[in-house]
Simulated scan of single mutants.
Amino acid sequence: MPKTRAKGQSKRFLNEDYILHLSILFLCFFPVILSFLMVTNGETTAFKLGGFFFRIGIPCVFRAATGYNCPTCGMTRSFIYMSDFNIFAAWSMNKAGVLLYWFCVFQIPYRLMLTFNRKIPFARIAVALGTIFLIIILFVTVGQFAFQFF
C-alpha cells in the first residue's frame, strides 16, 4: 500500500495542472513579497536589508531611446507603494501596476488551494473573473502607453 501512495503522489507532482498552478503561484507570490522588502522615493528603487540600502533597477532602454515610458515603466515602484498601502502614489506610478498587484494578491490563496487539491466553489467563475481582470489590465496598460503620445 505505501508503494501506491508514493506512486500517486509522484503522479500528482508531475501533473500538468499542478505545475501550472505552482508556476502561477510563484509568479504572483515573489513580486508581492519582494515589494515588501524594497523602498522607493519615486525615482530610484532599493532593497532595504537591515540598515543598508542596495540600489537596484535597470534603466529602461525604450525610455532612453524614445523619451517615452514603456508600458511597464513604474511597475516596480507601483508594487512597492501598494505594499506600503500608498494607493495614490502607486496609481500615479503605473495604473496597471495597481491592478496587477491586486490580481497577484488574489491569485496567491486561489493557487495555494488548487495546488493542495482543495475544491474551489465556483471555480469556473473564478477563472472567468481572472481572465476578465487580465484583459482589463491589458487595456489599461495599452491605454496608458498610448495616452502619453497625445
Rank of each mutant, 00 (worst) to 15 (best):
V61M: 02
F150P: 03
F150D: 11
L129T: 09
T141Y: 01
Y18C: 13
I24Q: 10
M82P: 11
D84V: 01
A6G: 11
R111C: 05
F106N: 08
M75N: 04
N69M: 08
G97M: 02
C60R: 01
L99F: 08
V98P: 06
E43R: 00
W102C: 15
K95W: 00
S92Y: 00
F133G: 08
Y18E: 09
I136H: 09
F133K: 01
F36C: 09
I125E: 05
G97P: 05
L27W: 08
R77T: 01
L114N: 04
S83I: 03
P121M: 15
E43W: 00
M1Y: 06
G97V: 01
A123T: 15
M113N: 15
M1W: 02
L100N: 03
T45V: 03
F106A: 11
G8S: 09
R12Y: 11
Q144I: 11
C28Y: 01
N117E: 07
L37Y: 10
F122M: 07
R77G: 00
V140H: 00
F26N: 08
I125M: 15
L129F: 15
Q107L: 06
I33F: 08
T141R: 00
S78A: 05
G51A: 06
L14G: 14
G51H: 03
A126L: 01
F29N: 07
F150L: 04
M1Q: 02
I24T: 02
F53T: 10
T66E: 15
V127S: 05
N94F: 01
P109K: 08
F133Y: 03
I56A: 12
L34H: 11
L49D: 12
M82K: 05
G57A: 05
Y81K: 10
I87C: 05
I58Q: 12
R77I: 00
I56D: 04
L27P: 03
N94D: 13
S10K: 10
R124S: 07
C60G: 11
V127F: 02
S10T: 13
R111H: 06
R5M: 13
N86G: 12
F116G: 14
A90N: 03
F29C: 06
L100V: 14
V98I: 12
I87D: 13
N86W: 00
T40L: 07
I19R: 11
N94S: 08
